[in-house]
């Protein structure tokens, strides 16, 4: 008699996989990556390659050393490397040790030390960026103006400190302004975001609420009194699109329930606006996401999905017998 494979149901599975999701996010980031290399030159490409290679390499070496299954090629480390690169300013090839240190830190300390994929409570790329910011602040905040390669203020710095001319909206939309490699082209980032929404890799809640909160907050708390802010400038400037669409949505450092996601994104938006308007830095997306990452365990505890049969709808039927 034939013997067949025995297994627990279900016997069919969706064609999704961890790698497919990671590749989807990398695909979504391609337009922004191309824009970054186009505007910031070939040096940007080197930074991206170093970040990706050292992230994947660090993960492989560590997993080998810890005798765990090597999953360095599942796309997740590569994505962390790419995200870190997109969060760095362009710098001379002599400085390439800095992206290397950042990527190795992101994977070794932020991701693997806490248990690997799915267990990190901070976004690895953002935590690495924060480390580099406090360790090498000058290198991390020397912004090179695209194309003509002269130092210049970012749009948000121009807004905050004055002195420099504000950037035109069109330049901010396409990415022809100062900033990190991947954050400047709002249009490219939004195109990638739409792809992720269609592929259902992310849902609208975190990016939608995050961006809307920043827009609303900066519009209300304008420089010349209430409702005089330039919301569009704040939406297009700085790292909001990159942060809201690609960083705050990181699976392992975002809340699990829909209510949790909305509160998380609201917190990110408020913190970003507060830092931008009244804080010591012109930009606050990275720090606000990191701060809100720390609140996620609380949000997960407080807002669990509603168990079936406990919603208000049940009250509709008067005859329910307890």
């Amino acid at each position: 008699m034939d013997k067949f494979a025995m297994s627990s149901s279900p016997h069919v599975r969706a064609s999704e996989s961890t790698r497919r999701i990671m590749i989807d996010v990398i695909i979504a980031l391609l337009p922004a990556t191309v824009c970054g290399v186009y505007f910031f030159g070939i040096d940007a490409l080197w930074i991206i390659l170093v970040c990706v290679a050292s992230a994947v390499g660090t993960e492989a070496v560590l997993q080998k050393l810890m005798r765990r299954k090597v999953t360095a090629l599942d796309g997740s480390a590569a994505l962390t490397g790419l995200l870190l690169a997109l969060n760095l300013p362009v710098m001379a090839p002599g400085m390439l040790w800095l992206p290397f240190v950042g990527a190795a830190f992101a994977i070794a300390i932020v991701k693997q030390a806490f248990g690997g994929i799915g267990s990190n409570f901070l976004n690895p790329a953002l935590a690495a960026r924060a480390l580099l910011m406090v360790s090498w602040p000058t290198a991390m905040t020397t912004w090179t103006m695209p194309v003509d390669a002269v130092s210049a203020a970012t749009p948000l710095a121009a807004l905050k400190y004055g002195g420099d001319a504000l950037s035109p909206y069109l330049d901010m939309a396409v990415g022809n302004v100062g900033g990190t490699i991947g954050e400047t082209s709002a249009i490219a980032l939004i195109i990638g975001g739409l792809y992720l929404l269609i592929r259902r890799v992310i849902d609208w809640r975190i990016p939608g609420v995050f961006i809307a909160t920043v827009a609303l907050f900066t519009f209300i708390a304008g420089p010349e009194g209430l409702f005089t802010g330039d919301a569009l400038y704040h939406m297009l400037g700085g790292g909001l699109m990159l942060g809201a669409i690609y960083m705050a949505t990181d699976y392992s450092s975002a809340p699990m329930s829909n209510t949790g996601k909305i509160i998380f994104a609201l917190g990110c938006g408020i913190l970003t606006s507060v830092i931008r308007l009244w804080g010591g830095f012109p930009e606050g997306v990275s720090y606000s996401i990191l701060l809100m990452n720390l609140v996620v365990p609380l949000l997960d505890k407080a807002f669990k999905p509603k168990l079936f049969g406990t919603s208000r709808r049940r009250a509709k039927f008067k005859g329910v017998t307890e």
Binding site: S7, V12, T18, G118
Partner: peptide, 23 residues
């Protein structure tokens, strides 16, 4: 019936999204 191998949970929370019992 492609046999599948488990890998680590990535906390994507799709299981929460699809659970009809809200678990």
């Amino acid at each position: 019936a492609k046999a599948t191998r488990e890998s680590d949970c990535i906390r994507c929370c799709k299981c929460i999204e699809v659970c009809p019992m809200g678990l």
